[in-house]
């Protein structure tokens, strides 16, 4: 009675009465019980995620609301933060460092780059914390874990919609005309969002076991920021006569960087004087599909392990 074995004996009471102990796994199979923790197939997983869409949306909105709930200005900060950022970067790089050499309409160039990059940066760093920062939630409730990184990206997307309003206003202030190309802005943002979701899914899985990632991320992000041509034109600085004078293929590789590609794409759409890059759409579509499909598959592979932390 007082030993664990009694439980096994208990199990045999319902089993065949031929005297030999029946393994518990067999008993489970006989009654059609399933493993409590099992990874669903990819299609089922997608459907479960779709069923949780209300949770994802509400969670994202709630996080955005609670973020500014303690400040007096409240949700106004969603507009003020990007505006202040734009002002600081313009002061630093446009006025003091004079990085604007050779770039037409430098304010629009800089602010577009900054806002587009910030969207990807914040989604990716949010994704890295989506699992490791929500262990108590994961250990309390059932839902497809991909809902968390997804919610973090949607939260950033909601923030981006406000930033885009600020960005379009600033770009108009710098005398850029409204062109038909502006109609493609939602497409560009959709592609970037696909990339962000994929990248944050990858980082979420990596961050769920590699605890040091969160400490290292700011470092990686700063490097990425400088490599993505936010403050300067990669073409001019790498290949041009005033720059490093490196061969053209170095610049081409740097433009293949997804962040650089999405920044260039948005500049092409917003600024008339900006020279269009060849194949930019192809690169953006490639990264969107590659990151989304690969990231989702990679995240799903460890679905049942996220509770362990």
């Amino acid at each position: 009675m007082s030993q664990p074995e009694s439980a096994i004996a208990d199990a045999q009471a319902g089993g065949p009465s031929n005297g030999t102990p029946e393994p518990l796994a067999k008993l489970a199979a006989r009654y059609g019980l399933r493993r409590a923790i099992a990874r669903p197939s990819l299609l089922v997983y997608l459907r479960q995620l779709w069923e949780r869409r209300h949770f994802v949306m509400t969670y994202a909105t709630s996080r955005n609301v609670s973020k500014y709930s303690n400040s007096a200005l409240g949700q106004l900060w969603q507009v003020l933060t990007p505006l202040l950022n734009a002002a600081i970067y313009f002061l630093m790089f446009g006025v003091i460092l004079g990085a604007s050499k050779g770039i037409d309409n430098y304010p629009a160039f800089l602010i577009t780059g900054m806002f587009v990059f910030t969207y990807t940066q914040r989604s990716v760093s949010g994704g890295a914390k989506a699992i490791s920062g929500n262990l108590s939630l994961i250990r309390a409730l059932h839902f497809p874990r991909a809902a968390l990184p997804l919610a973090y990206t949607i939260q950033e997307f909601q923030q981006l919609l406000i930033s885009m309003g600020v960005l379009l206003g600033l770009v108009l202030l710098t005398q850029e005309p409204v062109t038909l190309l502006w109609l493609l802005i939602p497409v560009a943002l959709a592609l970037q969002t696909m990339f962000n979701v994929g990248a944050s899914l990858v980082l979420a899985r990596v961050g769920s076991t590699a605890r040091d990632l969160n400490q290292l991320l700011p470092f990686i992000m700063r490097t990425w920021l400088y490599a993505s041509g936010v403050f300067f034109s990669i073409e001019d600085r790498v290949v041009g006569p005033n720059g490093a004078g490196l061969p053209q293929w170095v610049a081409d590789i740097m433009y293949f960087n997804p962040a650089a590609a999405y920044i260039e794409l948005m500049r092409d759409l917003l600024m008339q004087t900006h020279p269009a890059r060849p194949y930019i759409w192809a690169v953006c579509v490639f990264w969107a599909l590659f990151a989304l499909l690969g990231g989702f598959w990679y995240f799903w592979r460890a679905e049942e392990k996220y509770g362990r932390g």
């Binding site: 518990l24 796994a25 489970a28 009654y31 059609g32 493993r35 409590a36 099992a38 994961i138 409730l141």
Partner: peptide
Amino acid sequence: RAIAGLLPPHSGAVYTNGQ
């Protein structure tokens, strides 16, 4: 938590009917 399927077992298993 293991019965609820929220924590993966190190070894052994939990079998359940429904969630």
